[in-house]
Measured scan of single mutants.
Amino acid sequence: TEEYEYTDEQQAREAAREWREKGYTVTIEEHNGRWRVKTG
Rank of each mutant, 00 (worst) to 15 (best):
T1D: 11
T1A: 13
T1Y: 15
T1S: 13
E2N: 14
E2D: 12
E2T: 13
E3T: 13
E3I: 15
Y4C: 10
E5W: 15
E5D: 10
E5P: 11
E5S: 08
Y6T: 03
Y6A: 02
T7L: 14
T7Q: 12
T7N: 14
D8Q: 06
D8R: 04
D8L: 05
D8S: 13
D8V: 05
D8F: 06
E9S: 04
Q10S: 11
Q11H: 09
Q11G: 07
A12V: 03
A12T: 01
A12H: 00
A12D: 00
R13A: 09
R13D: 05
E14H: 08
E14C: 09
E14R: 11
A15T: 06
A15Y: 03
A15G: 04
A15P: 00
A15V: 08
A15F: 05
A15D: 04
A15I: 07
A16Y: 07
A16I: 04
A16R: 01
R17P: 01
R17D: 12
R17H: 10
R17N: 12
R17G: 07
E18K: 14
E18S: 11
E18P: 03
W19Y: 09
W19S: 04
R20G: 09
R20Y: 12
E21M: 05
E21W: 03
K22I: 04
K22Q: 10
K22P: 01
G23F: 02
G23H: 03
Y24K: 05
Y24F: 12
Y24P: 01
Y24T: 03
Y24M: 08
Y24W: 08
T25M: 12
T25I: 13
T25F: 14
V26D: 00
V26Y: 02
V26R: 00
V26K: 00
V26G: 01
V26H: 01
V26L: 02
V26W: 00
V26F: 02
T27D: 07
T27R: 05
T27I: 13
T27G: 04
I28S: 01
I28D: 00
I28G: 00
I28Y: 03
I28W: 02
E29K: 06
E29V: 11
E29L: 09
E29N: 06
E29D: 08
E29F: 10
E29S: 10
E30K: 10
E30H: 10
E30W: 11
H31E: 11
H31I: 14
H31T: 10
H31M: 10
H31K: 11
H31D: 10
N32L: 06
N32P: 02
N32E: 12
N32S: 05
N32V: 02
G33R: 02
G33F: 03
G33E: 03
G33T: 02
G33K: 03
R34P: 00
R34L: 09
W35A: 01
W35M: 01
W35F: 07
W35G: 00
W35C: 01
W35T: 01
W35L: 02
R36I: 15
R36M: 13
R36T: 13
R36H: 12
V37Q: 00
V37S: 00
V37H: 00
K38Q: 08
K38T: 13
K38L: 10
K38N: 08
T39A: 11
T39N: 05
T39E: 04
G40V: 15
G40N: 15
G40L: 14
